[in-house]
Design a protein around this nucleic acid. Structure first.
Lengths: 314, 314
DNA sequence: CATTCTTTGACAATCTATTGACGATTCTGA
DNA sequence: TCAGAATCGTCAATAGATTGTCAAAGAATG
C-alpha cells in the first residue's frame, strides 16, 4: 500500500485538526496509517477518503463513535443516501441513462403542468442518487435545460415559473439539515437586484445545507446594501450570488462593486450562474470567486470552512 | 438491523423534540430502538420513517396514542389519505393569546435571520391549530404583519425576503397536495405582471391544496397571456390572483382586462390581497370575485367546486 | 535552529438517559 | 353542565457518556 501522506497534509485536505485525526485513530481506530521507522504517520489515499467521509458524516449529525468503525463502502453509502456529497462522479452508462430519462420525464411533466408527476420524478431520482448526487447530476442539469427551453421559446414563461415553483418545493422539503448548532459556518445566498431567476440560488442553498453549512436564503432581486446588511447582521462567513438571466444589465456592475465595498473584507463573495460571463470584468475586479458548476461550488465551500476561521492565508 | 442513527440526528430529521421521541417510546412503544452498550438509543432508517409518519399524523390532528401502535404500512396508508380538514374555528381567548405569542416569536426570529427558530414556531402552531387553522389564523396574519413592518420601514427588504422564503418552505412541506386524482377541481394561482410579492399567492395555494383542490402555482409576475394560456392548457376551473404591493400600477388595470378577455368565460377569476382596493373599478369590471380574507376564500372554493360542475363528466 | 510530529493526561463542552412532576386539553359519565 | 380522569407535551435536575481541545515534553526533520 502506498502510504505517503503526512498528517499535516491530510489535516489540510480533510479540514480536520491533527488532534482530531489522532484521537479518532486512538479512540475509535478510524484509520490505521502506516508508520515510518521513526513512528511518523503515513496515510494512504484510501485513508484520506475515509477521513473525508467521516468528516462529512460527523458534520451532518452522526456521532463519530457510531460511524468510525464501519467499512469504507458503508460510509460511502451513508454519505450518498443521507446527506452529504458523493465526491466521486463515476457517471456510469447506467446512470447517464437514468438521468436522461429523468430529464425527459420532468420536461414532459412541466409541459403538462403536472406537479405531482414532477415531484414523483424528483423523488425517484433522489432515492437512486442520494441527496447530493441528485442535486448535482439531476436537478442542476434540469434547471439548465428548462432555462434553455425557455430561452428558445420552446416553453412559455408560465411553464418556466411553474417548474421553478415545483423544483423549489422539492428542494425545500429535501433540505432538512437545519439546526447544525451555532458552530457551523453560515452562508448567505441571494440574487442581486435585477436578477429574478431563483433556481440557481436555491440549488446553491440546498447544496450548502447538505454540506453542513447554516444557510440564510434571501431569495431574489436584492439591492447590494440589503445583502451586505444582512450578511453583517447574520455574521455570514461568505456570500453566494447567482446570476442567470439578464446577461447585460448595465446596473448590475455598479451593484456588485457597491456590495464589495459595503461588505467586510474578510467575507468572500462567491458568484455562479450562466450570466456571469456578461459581467466578467466586474467579477474579477471585486475578487469574487467565480464557479461554473455545483461540484466546484461544493469544493470551494469545503475549503472556505476550513481556511477561514484559522486565518490561514489563502 | 442496521441501527446507527443517534437521537439528535433523528430529532433534526423529524422535527420532533428529543424529549417527545423518548416519551413516545416510553408511553406508546412507538419505536423500539436498539441500544448501545451504554444505553444510548440507536435508530434504524425504518424507525426514522416511522417517526416521520407519526409526526405528520399528529400534526394533522391524530392523537399519538391512537396511531403509535399501528404497523408502519398502515401509517403510510393513513398519511396518503390525508387531506387537511382540521380545526373548525373556535377562536377562543386561549387561541388569540397563542396566536399573539406566535406572531411575536416569528417576528423576533425574522429580525435575527433565524430560520430554525421561525420553522419551529410555525410547526408549533400547526400542531396546535391544525393545517387549516394555522394557515388561516396564524400564517395569514403573520404575512400581513410582516408586510406592514416592511412598509413602515421597520424591517428591511432583506428581512421581508427572508421571511418569504422561510414561510414558503413551511408551506411547501405542510401542504399535502397531489393526494387527489384527476377528478379534483384545479385552481391556477399566480400574480400578475408587476406584482412581485408571492406570499399571498402561496397562502392561497396552500389553502386550496388543503381543501382538496389540485393546484398549479405559477408564482409571481406573469403577463395576462401567460396566465390565460396556462389556465386553458391545464383546464383550470378557476384562476386566483393575489395583489399585494404596488397599489397604483397603471399597467395592471389593462392587464386584468386582457386576462378576462383571453380567458374562457366559464372560468371565474378570484382576486385577493390588500392592494385590491387600488384597482377596485377594474376588478368590478371584469366581474372578478373579490375576497379580502382567507376564510372567505376557502368558502368560495367550496362553493365553486360544487356549483360549477361545468364539465360534469370530465 | 525552527518546524513538524508523537505521546500522554487532563479538561471542558456538549449530548444523552432517566425520573418525576407540571399544566393544558380533551374525554367521560353522572 | 360540571367534576374527575385520561391524554399529551414540556420542564428541571442529576448523572453519565461522548467528543473536541489543550499543554507539555521529547523526538525527528530539513
Amino acid at each position: 500500500m502506498d502510504s505517503l501522506l503526512g498528517i499535516g497534509l491530510v489535516s489540510r485536505r480533510t479540514g480536520l485538526t491533527q488532534h482530531v485525526i489522532r484521537i479518532w485513530e486512538r479512540r475509535y481506530g478510524a484509520v490505521k496509517p502506516d508508520r515510518t521507522a521513526t513512528k511518523r504517520r503515513r496515510y494512504s489515499v484510501g485513508d484520506l477518503e475515509r477521513l473525508n467521509l467521516l468528516s462529512l458524516l460527523t458534520r451532518s449529525g452522526h456521532g463519530i463513535g457510531s460511524v468510525a468503525g464501519m467499512p469504507t463502502a458503508s460510509l460511502r453509502e451513508l454519505v450518498g443516501g443521507l446527506s452529504g456529497k458523493a465526491a466521486p462522479a463515476p457517471a456510469s452508462p447506467v446512470e447517464t441513462k437514468l438521468v436522461e430519462s429523468f430529464i425527459e420525464e420532468c420536461v414532459a411533466a412541466i409541459r403538462s403542468f403536472d406537479g405531482g408527476r414532477l415531484q414523483a420524478a424528483l423523488r425517484h431520482l433522489e432515492t437512486r442518487l442520494g441527496a447530493h448526487g441528485s442535486l448535482q447530476r439531476g436537478v442542476a442539469p434540469l434547471v439548465c435545460i428548462v432555462g434553455e427551453l425557455w430561452r428558445m421559446g420552446d416553453v412559455t414563461v408560465a411553464h418556466e415559473h411553474f417548474a421553478s415553483v415545483e423544483i423549489r418545493r422539492f428542494l425545500s422539503s429535501a433540505t432538512r439539515s437545519y439546526a447544525q448548532g451555532e458552530s457551523a459556518p453560515l452562508l448567505l445566498v441571494a440574487t442581486p437586484a435585477g436578477q429574478l431567476h431563483e433556481l440557481g440560488a436555491l440549488l446553491a442553498s440546498s447544496a450548502a445545507g447538505n454540506m453542513g453549512w447554516r444557510v440564510v436564503h434571501l431569495g431574489v432581486g436584492l439591492p447590494a446594501a440589503e445583502i451586505a446588511g444582512a450578511a453583517v447582521q447574520s455574521r455570514a462567513r461568505a456570500v453566494a450570488l447567482s446570476l442567470v438571466h439578464p446577461e447585460d444589465d448595465p446596473a448590475l456592475g455598479p451593484e456588485l462593486l457597491k456590495l464589495r465595498e459595503l461588505l467586510p473584507g474578510e467575507i468572500p463573495i462567491i458568484i455562479g450562474g450562466r450570466a456571469v460571463r456578461g459581467y466578467r470584468d466586474t467579477v474579477r475586479r471585486i475578487k469574487a470567486i467565480h464557479l461554473e458548476d455545483l461540484g466546484r461550488f461544493c469544493a470551494t465551500l469545503d475549503k472556505l470552512r476550513t481556511l477561514r476561521p484559522a486565518g490561514k492565508g489563502c
